[in-house]
Each structure stands twice: as C-alpha cells, then as structure tokens.
C-alpha cells in the first residue's frame, strides 16, 4: 500500500487541484468554526470567522472559475496532496486550537497563521515550478494571500491579547469540587 504524493508545482492541472482544495477547505473551516462559536454563544468570534469565511469563499470561487476555464482537473485523494509543511491544506485553521471562550485576538491569530501558510504554499510553488503558467498563477495567488495577511494584521491591531484569565469560566462544564 505504497502511497503516492502529487506535487502541485508539477503542472497547471495539479496546481489548480491543490489551489481549489486549499481555498475550499479554508472557507469551509472558517464556516465550521463560526457555526461552532454560534452554538456556544460566542457571537463576536463567530462573526469574525464568518467574515473570514466570506473572503475565502470569494477566493475559492475565483480559483474555481480559473479551473473551469482550464477543464477537468486531475482527481487527487486527500492524502495525495503535497502540502509539505502541514498535514491538512495549509490555510485550513486547526480545529484543535479553538476554545469556546476564545477572544477575537485568538481567532485572528489562528487566521493569521492560516493565511501565512497559504501565502507560503503559493510562494514555494512559484519558486519551485518549472512551468511558467504555474509560476504566474502561483505568484498571483500568493499576492492575494499576502493581502489577506495584511488585512488580518490590521484587524489584530484592534484586538490586543486578552488577560491571562480569559478562559476562566464561573460555571465550568467540568465540575471537580
């Protein structure tokens, strides 16, 4: 059961398959985090994740449009994507870093990491590929991600790190006394 791994820098089809998975998973993950925060009445963070999802979904739709013009994409199983630095697609915020009492600062730090990883992925493909069309697209997508990084940084200025007791819950789910 030798596993194959497919490199997004190899050709346009594989690059677009990677880009589409990256953008769709990023948008879906932000939506799932927003839903999860709403279920726990963390309205402020839910709205932030919802806004981030809107931006990512817009980019996903742009990539999908480019893919449509390209034609049918190669079928790549989830474990065949070559992401290098991450086990999941690089822009999908990690579920395990969420907390029901998290503050906007934490949500934006999560988003900043994700957008950085997305930017790094595209930049590394642009540097590695020998295909000029892949290089052009990768540079373009990297620039878009750099814009997202700048946007999240700007939002972070409004939300400084909270006090250390941010996760204290006067009515915790785990009653130990």
């Amino acid at each position: 059961m030798k596993m194959k791994v497919l490199n997004g820098a190899a050709n346009v089809g594989l690059f677009l398959a990677h880009a589409l998975a990256l953008e769709i998973e990023a948008a879906e993950r932000y939506t799932e985090l927003a839903d999860s925060m709403e279920a726990h009445n963390n309205v402020e963070v839910a709205k932030l994740f919802r806004d981030l999802s809107t931006y990512s979904a817009k980019h996903a739709e742009e990539v999908k449009q480019i893919a449509r013009e390209f034609g049918a994409l190669p079928k790549v199983a989830p474990w065949e994507f070559q992401w290098d630095a991450t086990t999941e697609s690089p822009e999908a915020a990690a579920f395990e870093n969420a907390h029901y009492l998290m503050k906007p600062h934490h949500a934006l730090k999560m988003a900043l990491l994700s957008e950085h990883q997305g930017n790094n992925y595209y930049a590394s493909v642009a540097a590695e590929t020998k295909d000029p069309e892949v290089a052009r697209l990768a540079r373009e997508f990297a620039e878009e991600e750099a814009g997202h990084v700048a946007l999240v940084r700007k939002w972070l200025e409004r939300y400084p790190a909270p006090k250390d007791d941010w996760s204290d819950d006067p009515d915790p789910p785990n009653i130990s006394d």
């Binding site: 079928k75 579920f95 870093n97 907390h99 998290m102 789910p173």
Partner: peptide, 20 residues
C-alpha cells in the same frame, strides 16, 4: 470541475460539539 466534494456529504445540521 472536480466531481463530488466533501461538502456534498454534510447536512445542514450544525455540529454542537465543544470547540476544539
């Protein structure tokens, strides 16, 4: 473009598991 997507297999019901 790419055939069935994971999102096609999700329902409209939102999970209520704890974040994380």
């Amino acid at each position: 473009v790419v055939g069935p997507l994971p999102g096609d297999y999700k329902s409209d019901v939102k999970p209520i598991w704890c974040p994380g």
